[in-house]
Design a protein around this nucleic acid. Structure first.
Length: 271
DNA sequence: CAGCGCCCCTGCCCGC
DNA sequence: TGCGGGCAGGGGCGCT
């Protein structure tokens, strides 16, 4: 499910309900996520007060006095704030109960998500230390991206989806950003001009910013609602629109598979 | 070491 | 209505 905007929305949505609260207990119903849920999480977290909820890429960071709980939602994961009378559904794998009565509940049918506990500096964790810049940060800019891409033969689409290059550009936004920038997804990363990287960086920032803004509209009823992201409704130019007319030129939108991922583009508008 | 496939898993939709 | 196949918004790992 989550691309970065949804993780950001989740981060903002859960924080006010659990920040500053002490953990009462942890229930693990199924520890078999992508990696095993750390053993003894109940003992580790109980009594500790959650300081802040943060995010790095698509990893959520729950900062406690004695360490950090790192969570990834994978493809199908979601977090909800519930209470003790909320019925447990299938695939509700982990509950973190707080003393104010709120429960942070992880739901993940495909179990591609993961949970890690570290007592060290979280950004130095193996999974985080090699991550590229945040897309909305000034550190993500055309000059550095172009420099990074020099001599790289990998297709531009796979390049921008590589979390070592930039975090948070998932499959939908990769297609959408390339369309906006007029760049063909199969073009080699090293064969994209510096000028066109300007357009691409701008497009990525625009698309992600807009999606976060839309995700934000669902924040209000985050606790009561199902946490469904707003960006489903956002106007997608090419993603999932195979055969439909391009919004720019009218030519049917093309589709192919790159790196086992569906890819959508317009052969007229993207070169 | 860049560049590729593979795979973890369930749900859902489509065609027969 | 049942069943098999294909596909899904991620990303680490292992092989060449």
């Amino acid at each position: 499910m989550p691309e970065l905007p949804e993780v950001e929305t989740t981060c903002r949505g859960i924080a006010p309900h659990i920040q500053g609260q002490a953990v009462e207990g942890v229930t693990v119903r199924n520890s078999k996520l992508r990696w095993p849920v750390p053993r003894g999480l109940n003992k580790t977290l109980s009594g500790q007060s959650l300081i802040t909820v943060g995010r790095r890429g698509k990893y959520l960071l729950l900062n406690f006095p004695q360490g950090t709980l790192i969570m990834h939602l994978g493809m199908s994961g979601s977090l909800q704030i519930v209470t003790s009378d909320t019925p447990v559904r299938k695939h509700d794998h982990v509950d973190i109960a707080f003393t104010n009565g709120n429960i942070l509940r992880l739901h993940d049918p495909r179990r591609f998500g993961s949970i890690h506990w570290t007592t060290a500096e979280p950004l130095q964790h193996d999974l985080l230390s090699q991550l590229g810049p945040e897309p909305l940060d000034t550190a993500f800019n055309a000059d550095d991206l172009w420099q990074h891409a020099r001599k790289r033969k990998v297709a531009i689409k796979q390049f921008i989806m590589d979390s070592h290059v930039v975090v948070g550009v998932g499959n939908i936004y990769a297609s959408e950003s390339l369309f906006r920038a007029g760049i063909h997804p199969k073009r080699a990363a090293g064969k994209v001009s510096r000028e066109r990287y300007e357009a691409l960086v701008k497009a990525i920032k625009t698309v992600i910013r807009a999606a976060i803004k839309q995700g934000g509209t669902t924040l209000r009823d985050f606790t009561g609602g199902d946490g469904k992201p707003g960006y489903f409704k956002q106007k997608l130019n090419v993603y999932g629109r195979q055969g439909e007319p391009c919004n720019n030129c009218g030519k049917p939108v093309s589709h192919c598979v790159m790196g086992q991922r569906a890819t959508y583009y317009c052969t007229q508008c993207q070169k």
